[in-house]
Write a protein that binds this DNA or RNA. Structure first.
Length: 198
DNA sequence: TCATTAAAGTTAT
DNA sequence: ATAACTTTAATGA
């Protein structure tokens, strides 16, 4: 969890429920709030000229979203779309900044989360530029598995659809599917009734 | 090699 | 039921 829920609530955050496909914010909006996911999944994405989706990241319980932009005076460069029934804490920007102003510890926590996001971006950028599909997908899975306690092979159930994995790595679904099949053959992962175990 | 298109099967809502 | 996801196959850059 980025920031303790009670601290956010005391600071005036409101709890909001979102349904799948609802947007927390979208590209071009001015950032006015700090968002923290209590429960649920949210994707940050963009659409290119042809309308092809690129998913920047998929965030889950305890993570914040859009915080990367709240410190500067620029519109959002991406959309934040809710994927599952979600509960989100929403705190106005000024209250959020006041909160940080009063607590060096919170500043550190936000910085740490920001670093983590930056690290992910860096890893994925490396992956995506000039890497073969296997390396891209493996890079993605390695990153998400790195947070799991159990590091043994095939213990991690990939929490994404193939569609999402393709959009996260800049591949088309069909290539993602074929590559995943190939990786199964090479014992890099296992498939149990369509679920990917890595 | 990978993207794209099309078509069909499967799962989730 | 209908939409979203998964899969296979053919074709082209």
């Amino acid at each position: 969890m980025v920031i303790d829920e009670e601290i956010l609530q005391t600071a005036g955050a409101e709890t909001k429920q979102y349904k799948p496909s609802e947007l927390l914010f979208c590209e071009g909006d001015t950032p006015n709030y700090y968002y923290q996911i209590i429960k649920g999944d949210v994707k940050l994405n963009n659409y290119n000229e042809e309308g092809k989706e690129f998913i920047q990241n998929i965030l889950s319980d305890g993570q914040s979203c859009g915080e990367s932009i709240i410190f500067i005076d620029k519109p959002y460069p991406m959309n934040a779309e809710v994927l599952t029934e979600s509960t989100v804490l929403k705190l106005h920007k000024t209250a959020f900044l006041n909160l940080l102003d009063k607590s060096p510890r919170l500043y550190l926590e936000i910085s740490s989360f920001l670093s983590e996001r930056l690290y992910y971006k860096f890893i994925m950028m490396q992956n995506i530029s000039s890497q073969n599909p296997t390396a891209r997908l493996k890079g993605l899975m390695d990153y998400f598995k790195s947070f799991e306690v159990d590091e043994s092979p095939y213990s991690f159930l990939i929490p994404f659809t193939r569609q999402q994995m393709a959009s996260l790595t800049g591949l088309c679904v069909e290539t993602a599917i074929r590559t995943i099949k190939h990786m199964e053959k090479d014992n890099i992962l296992r498939i149990k009734d369509r679920k990917i175990m890595y």
